[in-house]
Amino acid sequence: MATPNFRPKTTLEQWRILQAVVDYGGYARAAEALNKSQSSMNHAVAKLQQSLGVKLLKVVGRKAELTATGEVMLRRSRQLTVLVTELEQLALNLKQGWEPEIKLAVEMAFDRKQLLPVLREFQLHSRGSRLIIEDTVLTGSVEAIVEQTADIVITHQLPRGIVGEPLSNYQMHLVVAASHPLAQLPQPVSPDQLSQYLQIVIRDTARKPVEAEGWLKAEQRWTVNNFTEALHLVEAGIGFCWLPPFVTSTADELVELTLAGSSRREGGMYLVLPKDEKTGPCARLLYDMLVSELTNMSASSIRT
């Protein structure tokens, strides 16, 4: 970190001129490209070297070439000029109402791999805005919508009066380790049989959670923060849990239980703009990209 009294000896323009001399292979072509006189280019590079006290260029025949020191300094200078360009672009974006940060809240039961193509493309158009991706569970998703703490929400629950764009369905399977006593019982198992064993549940992310979903009658319950922790406990034979197929697909020696009257939990996912017309342009861009990709994916899965 620079000290408060630090004063740069060089200018950004000098570094840009050095870059141009190297990129265009000499002072003459660089001067023509930048619409400057060759003498001013020579003077700028000479001043840069004098200020730094190091040799950046050497003349070989009629061509200026970088010294070993010059190669290092040029590489770092490119990072500097890119950073300044991005900084100025960010200022322009903010002036135009472009958000410096947006939040995407995603229900944990949604397979994140579906987001990757969109996020890869969005990164190219985000103009430096930061993206926060937040896991939500159960009423935590509803809370993010009602309290507008996120710009975009992917949820399986729609609060009253809120509309959402339908996405692909989700599924939750009831699973235990093959070594677990429940796996040895005749199927389907009854709710009474299930209630005698430890259930692993995922913590509701709401500040005031409402336990209104899922099978929660087990006397013994352990609560974890995510599916990965839950899967580890299930694989160890410690308890049973409702988990989505994208989590269990790579797990070894798991058994899917059949519960009398409810062997699986499933439903639709929705894409929601909690702030509606107050949504900023960056969040709106990501939303439109998600709609285009994920609704097409949903339609494709229905056709097949």
Rank of each mutant, 00 (worst) to 15 (best):
C282P: 03
L80S: 10
S298Y: 12
V22E: 08
F6E: 07
A144S: 05
G53D: 02
R203K: 10
A105I: 06
V255P: 06
V106T: 09
V45G: 09
S195A: 11
A68V: 14
A206P: 13
V175Y: 01
V84L: 08
I145S: 01
H180N: 00
I202S: 05
L158V: 01
S141P: 10
P159D: 14
A44C: 06
D111R: 15
R207V: 15
R264D: 13
S126C: 08
N225V: 01
A20C: 07
R303G: 08
T85V: 05
E32A: 05
E235K: 05
G161R: 05
T304F: 15
E88Y: 12
F6Q: 12
S300E: 14
S51R: 09
A299T: 08
I102K: 07
E134A: 07
N35Q: 07
M108Q: 09
K9C: 02
H125G: 04
M289C: 07
T139H: 05
R207H: 10
A206S: 08
W222K: 11
L216V: 12
Q50A: 01
T223S: 15
L94Y: 07
G97H: 02
N169C: 12
F122K: 02
E88I: 08
Q171P: 15
R16G: 08
S195K: 11
Q89H: 06
V224T: 03
H43F: 15
G280T: 03
M41F: 15
I102Q: 02
V163N: 06
H232C: 10
W98I: 05
L231W: 04
L259A: 01
F122G: 02
Q148R: 07
H125C: 05
R303H: 14
E99N: 07
L294Q: 01
L131T: 03
M1V: 15
H232L: 15
K47S: 11
G97P: 02
N5K: 12
V84G: 00
R76M: 10
Q114L: 13
K63I: 09
N5Y: 00
V224R: 05
P4G: 07
E219G: 03
A218V: 03
D151R: 05
M297A: 15
Q79F: 11
L131C: 07
A109F: 00
S39I: 04
T295A: 03
S39K: 09
E256K: 13
V59M: 13
I152S: 03
T228V: 14
W98E: 07
L116G: 14
L198W: 14
E253D: 13
T295R: 03
A68S: 05
Y24A: 01
M289N: 06
E211G: 02
E293F: 02
V153G: 14
T10L: 10
T67S: 07
P117C: 01
Q123W: 10
Q79H: 11
L119V: 03
V272Y: 06
F240L: 10
L87C: 12
W242T: 10
T155Q: 07
N93W: 11
V224S: 03
L119E: 09
D252V: 04
R203P: 00
A260M: 00
T223I: 05
E219F: 05
S126W: 12
D192Y: 01
G140A: 06
L271A: 04
A283N: 04
M108N: 08
R75K: 14
N35I: 15
L116N: 12
D192S: 11
V72M: 00
